[in-house]
Design a protein around this nucleic acid. Sequence first.
DNA 1: TAGAATTTGAGCAATATGGTCAAATTTAGG
DNA 2: CCTAAATTTGACCATATTGCTCAAATTCTA
Lengths: 158, 158
Amino acid sequence: MVRLDDVDLKILLALIRDPRIQVSELADEAGVARNTAQSRLRRLQRSEVLREGGRDIDLGVLGYDVLAFVTLEVNHRELDAVITALRQIPNVLEIHETSGRGDVWVRLIATDTHQLQSVLRQILRIKGVTRSETTFALHSHLAYRTAPLLEHYAEHDH
Amino acid sequence: MVRLDDVDLKILLALIRDPRIQVSELADEAGVARNTAQSRLRRLQRSEVLREGGRDIDLGVLGYDVLAFVTLEVNHRELDAVITALRQIPNVLEIHETSGRGDVWVRLIATDTHQLQSVLRQILRIKGVTRSETTFALHSHLAYRTAPLLEHYAEHDH
DNA sequence: TAGAATTTGAGCAATATGGTCAAATTTAGG
DNA sequence: CCTAAATTTGACCATATTGCTCAAATTCTA
């Protein structure tokens, strides 16, 4: 597992915001010398925290091992408030309104099942949430990718 | 909706592979002059095809408007073969093995419901897939993000 | 407290960037 | 088919950035 200190974190956040940011700016953001920023960046790239070059981050490598998909049943009148509350939770990575049984689909991540429990309780306390159903992602067989679709796009959809 | 030609596509694919790639390499990859690569890159950045935040590309902007989550029930003996088959499909963006009712969770994207139908048929024809359940994502209330979690990480999980 | 590891600042050469420009080429319309 | 507009190209330039080294300072670890 990879551990990040404050400097790594600031560099990562800057890279997420703008993957093409300059090393010198990275250094400014993190408040370190350019040399340091450069070696930290190199290390982050090697460590596989940065997936495929730079945009996405491998949270598993950081110790977030529990991924879950949560389906919420929501009182429609309070949907907006529920969404707003969900967005406040850092462990909530993605939210979609869906068709079908539940109303809202949520991607949740946590360090362990204990932390997940705690986040789930937090969600169930939100006014307007009437029911929840949690599915654990036990193993990722294909991490989010768009390249094949784009390659396809040229020949077909377009 | 944004339309991409072959040059845009090659530039995008190169950027996905390595977001920090140099403009001159981008030009080589796309087989155009550096000036052209530079102006295309600028345009792509402005057009919001390139997203800031976690995930690379905004597929909605390209006309992929239908997002669906599909839960598959799979004959365990043939799981590996099913995964392999699913990976071949460009419209499959993500695959997870899950606990709970279904066995495999799939993120599907398509230009329209007709194309989605076609992909779903393709999936149901895979040997080992016994049942499927599709949920439509009608509206995204929070696009994939990791920044808040990382900011949180500093103070807590770490 | 000693030794190891990291950070810093400086300096340097090679390269990349962002910009301009005129000419060539391609695209779109009539 | 021809013209006008848009895009692309290659050349050029000044400036900024990169990747690298090195010795000194600082921080971390045992």
